[in-house]
């Protein structure tokens, strides 16, 4: 618990490095929702291979670490199926309508001083904080 912030910084730096490779190498913005969403709605089918390989790395690297290190790992996600489905739908619809999520608007947007990225980040953190506070402390659902 005491070293969480150090692991946060190290992990964060690797995330930023990944974004830097994607930008400087391929000239693309590393936004998870855009990379996935373009495959779902067809707008990214012309660059499907690049997207699929990126997603393969995103899935396989943590999987390899999980298997090889034998680290105890869990997402601690809620067991309330209604909450999981509602959350997934909201994240899917919202990120595509806003054209970005935590990686695209947050990491890649803020780092280029994009007003859009900053506004999006303020709104999704505010909405997330209000939702969590209501559902946890007012209604006691999560």
């Amino acid at each position: 618990m005491d070293h969480d912030w150090i692991m946060g910084l190290i992990g964060g730096a690797l995330i930023g490095l990944g974004g830097a490779v994607y930008l400087l190498g391929n000239g693309r913005i590393m936004g998870a929702s855009g990379i996935i969403g373009g495959l779902v709605d067809g707008t990214g089918w012309s660059t499907a291979a690049e997207r699929l390989v990126f997603l393969a790395g995103l899935f396989l690297a943590p999987t390899a670490l999980y298997v090889l290190t034998g680290m105890e790992k869990t997402t601690n996600v809620t067991s309330n199926w209604f909450v999981i489905v509602a959350a997934g739908l909201l994240v899917g619809v919202g990120t595509r309508i806003a054209n970005g999520c935590t990686s695209g608007h947050g990491v890649c947007g803020i780092s280029r001083f994009s007003l859009r990225g900053m506004v999006a980040t303020v709104f999704y953190i505010l909405a997330g904080g209000i939702m969590l506070t209501l559902m946890r402390h007012v209604f006691g659902v999560i």
Binding site: I36, A87, G92, G94, A98, N99, C101, A127, G128
Partner: peptide, 21 residues
């Protein structure tokens, strides 16, 4: 779109604690 989408995304993110990546 940026505002409405980000609010919807944030609601889901707060509910489950997961985002796409």
């Amino acid at each position: 779109r940026l505002v409405v989408g980000s609010v919807l995304f944030g609601m889901g993110w707060g509910l489950a604690g997961l985002c796409p990546g």
